[in-house]
Amino acid sequence: VSGLRACHPAGPNMSPWPESNWTTPPEFVILGFSGWPQGLRLLLFTFLLPLYLATLAGNLLILGLAVVDPALHTPMYFFLGALSTVEVAYTLVLTPRMLAGFLLSPGGQAVARSTCAAQMGLFVALGGSECLLLAAMALDRYLAICRPLYYPQLMTTGLCWCLLASCCVGGSILALGLTTAIFQLPFCQAGLVNHVFCDLPAVLVLACGDRQLQEQVLLAACLLLLVLPLALILLSYTRVLVVILGVGGPAGRRKAFNTVASHLTVAVLHYGCATAMYARPLSSRSLEEDKLVSLIYVSLTPLLYPAIYTLRNRDVQGALQRVVGGRTPGTVHQADVN
């Protein structure tokens, strides 16, 4: 690490190093919080490890309930189980290595170039799939509430699988394009990634030469994965809320409103944090601030998703009671009524 020099570009898109000095480092060093005292890093590890375990447990619980309870074999819980699967994979890609860095690597974690590229690609693929999946969930709620008579014919099992496959393929194609575009650049005499993982802006800022195309591709990806899906979600749920307030009894309106509120809360958390992290040019970024925001984004928001769905959703609560109590979905108990 001591033999590496950081690259500080002179302009927003260019490096001051002459082209003859450009190198391709054989490995990158993820700095994380290596500059912090060991006691603070240990405290951070102690705080984040229970969050990580709770995130895995919560999302695996939702996935398990969506699979084993026949009452949850509906399109909404199909997508909810898929979302939990993405969250589990997402945290497995990022969090274990990040936690190990707090304990084992006071000077930063050295990772191979291929490992850094793979982590970036998986992170973008899973995050992009989640962005599109939330939009698919909004479409499902729109059809269920605004087109209830046609909903069984429209939202079939085949369509659910097609939407899920489209979300995964779309996220994967975008991840492959972004990762390839960034790692085809030459890098300065530095592999010091000032982040907790190989995030796109933190690696792109190390690139030498003209990186304007890569920045434009990144901003275009933000438009496709963040702005457009969020706009569709807000439009869909605006229409849903209008329908809820106009028809149905108090009990039905309350249940539908709770479902919409849960989905909107997740959407605001996800798209809000992601927009704050990525929808900005490199010239206006502070990597130290990005590092702290991403720590919250990676560690806290995946835990909030299962908490929001399980605490606000009586169907999931009832499924959990049935599984724990060994009851069948058709058995009605006072706990299910309340």
Rank of each mutant, 00 (worst) to 15 (best):
S2N: 11
P9F: 03
P12Y: 00
N13E: 11
M14P: 00
P18N: 05
N21D: 14
E27R: 12
L31T: 07
S34K: 07
L40V: 11
F47Q: 06
F47V: 15
P50S: 08
A54L: 15
L80K: 06
A89R: 04
M98T: 13
L104D: 12
Q109K: 11
A112C: 05
R113S: 07
A117G: 04
A136M: 11
M137I: 13
Y142G: 02
C146Q: 02
C162H: 05
S166T: 14
C167L: 05
C168I: 14
G171M: 04
S172L: 15
I173W: 12
T179D: 04
F187L: 04
D199K: 06
L200H: 09
L204K: 05
D210V: 01
V217N: 08
L219A: 15
L219M: 15
L223M: 09
L226Q: 13
P229A: 03
L230T: 09
V243D: 03
P250E: 14
F257W: 12
A261I: 00
S262M: 12
A267I: 05
C273N: 06
A274P: 02
A274V: 04
Y278S: 08
A279H: 12
L287C: 03
D290W: 00
K291I: 00
Y297M: 11
T301K: 06
P302A: 05
I308P: 01
R314T: 13
Q317F: 02
Q321R: 15
V323D: 00
R327D: 10
V332G: 01
N338S: 09
